[in-house]
Each structure stands twice: as C-alpha cells, then as structure tokens.
C-alpha cells in the first residue's frame, strides 16, 4: 500500500540525489554491478510510473523501463552530464515509450481550461461563496497519513495521462519545471497549465477527504 515517507527523508531522486547519481554513474562506467543496482533502485519507481502514463499494461510498462536501461547502458559513454542523469533517463524512457507505439493520451491544454475550483463556489462578483476551510496545522494529526496517501494516488490515477505525468514528475519526483518540459517535450506554458489543473484536482480530492472527517 502507498505510504508517506518520513518527513526528514529526501525525495529519492530529488535534490541532493544528483551528486550520488554522478558517483554511481562513474562506478557504473567502470563496470560496477552494485552501482547499477543502486541506480535502478533509485530511479525505477519514477520510470515505471512515467511509463504507465503511456501504456495501460503494467507488463508493457516494465518492458519499456528495461529497454530504457539497456539503451542507457549502451549509451553510457554518450552521456555528457549537461542534464541531470535523472532527466536523461526519463527522456530516453519517453522516446522508448513513443517508439514502441504506445498511444499517448493527447491532453494538450485547451484555450479554455477547466477551472481549478468549481465556478459554483464563487458569487457573481468572483468572490468566494463557499470558501475553503482551514485545514488543521498538521493534517495527519487528524487523519492518518495512510488515509491521505491513497487519496492522492487514486486522484493521480484518474487524471488524463499527460496531466498525471506532469504532476508526478514535478510534485512527486520533484524535477524542476524545465526538466519536466525537457522530458515530456512540453512548452513551459503547457506544462504549467497541466500542472495547475492537476494540482487543483489533488487539492480538491484532499479537501473532500479531510472535510468529511
């Protein structure tokens, strides 16, 4: 079951992971199997989740991740370190996913985006008629983290594929927004539109869960 990581733990592939990645990469280049395992361990989950935004099947997603690592190993001398290893890996994965013919949901942001908050919650003047209520200082004090993690996971699953990919890369894996654009081949504006809608949905899902307790 999905859980939350302890508060003080760094995101597994987040800031602070880059130096370790560089060291592991050096060791991998010299043929160190343990370094490869460590890299796979560290990046597997983000890669698999990203692959799942291209294909429905878990098995096919796993194949895409494996193909990606094969491509990474064979291209390891070509990695110049201009982007982070993580961005490079994920960009290769997206290329692999596209070249396997995976059908990507085309959720290109429209000019008239769905609002982040239901219009019914505002009055005619655009002010709140049903304002949000303050959540407890520490939400988990009232609701266990084990209750909220599935709320987020399930809402992510319900999102259109591209929106989910953007939110996962930016807010779960904590890539920078320019890295997200690079990996998914999105413009900065489109990335932010998708992110905005996705975050709006997550907040709403949490509000529904927290408000009902």
């Amino acid at each position: 079951m999905p859980r939350f990581k302890p508060r003080n733990r760094r995101p597994i592939a987040g800031p602070g992971g880059a130096d370790d990645d560089a060291q592991l990469l050096e060791r991998l280049r010299s043929g160190d199997e343990a370094a490869f395992s460590a890299l796979v361990e560290r990046h597997h989950d983000p890669m698999l989740r990203l692959a799942r935004t291209f294909v429905q099947s878990q098995a096919v997603a796993e194949e895409i991740v494996q193909d990606t690592w094969v491509a990474v190993l064979h291209g390891i001398e070509n990695f110049e370190g201009r982007s982070s290893l993580r961005t490079w890996l994920l960009a290769i994965l997206v290329n692999r996913a596209r070249s396997t013919g995976a059908r990507e949901a085309r959720t290109v942001p429209s000019a008239d985006p769905t609002p982040a908050v239901d219009a019914a919650r505002f009055n005619a003047g655009g002010g709140w008629s049903t304002p949000p209520e303050q959540w407890a200082e520490d939400v988990e004090a009232r609701l266990s983290a084990d209750t909220l993690a599935p709320v987020i996971r399930e809402e992510l699953e319900r999102m259109p594929a591209r929106q989910r990919a953007v939110v996962m890369l930016r807010d779960v894996d904590q890539l920078r927004s320019d890295e997200v654009c690079q990996v998914l081949g999105l413009s900065a504006v489109n990335e932010r539109v998708l992110l905005h809608r996705g975050r709006g949905r997550l907040r709403q899902a949490l509000e529904d869960a927290i408000g009902g307790c």
């Binding site: 999905p2 859980r3 939350f4 990581k5 304002p131 959540w135 939110v167 807010d171 779960v172 975050r199």
Partner: peptide, 19 residues
C-alpha cells in the same frame, strides 16, 4: 487559506513513497 491548502497538498504529494 486556499494557498495554504495548496502548500499542504504539495507537501503531502511530495512525500509519496516510491514502490
């Protein structure tokens, strides 16, 4: 309050544990 909820949403989302 809305902005605070959004910060909390991002904090919780950033703490999802990798499988």
């Amino acid at each position: 309050v809305y902005l605070a909820q959004m910060h909390e949403t991002l904090r919780l989302t950033g703490r999802l544990v990798p499988e």
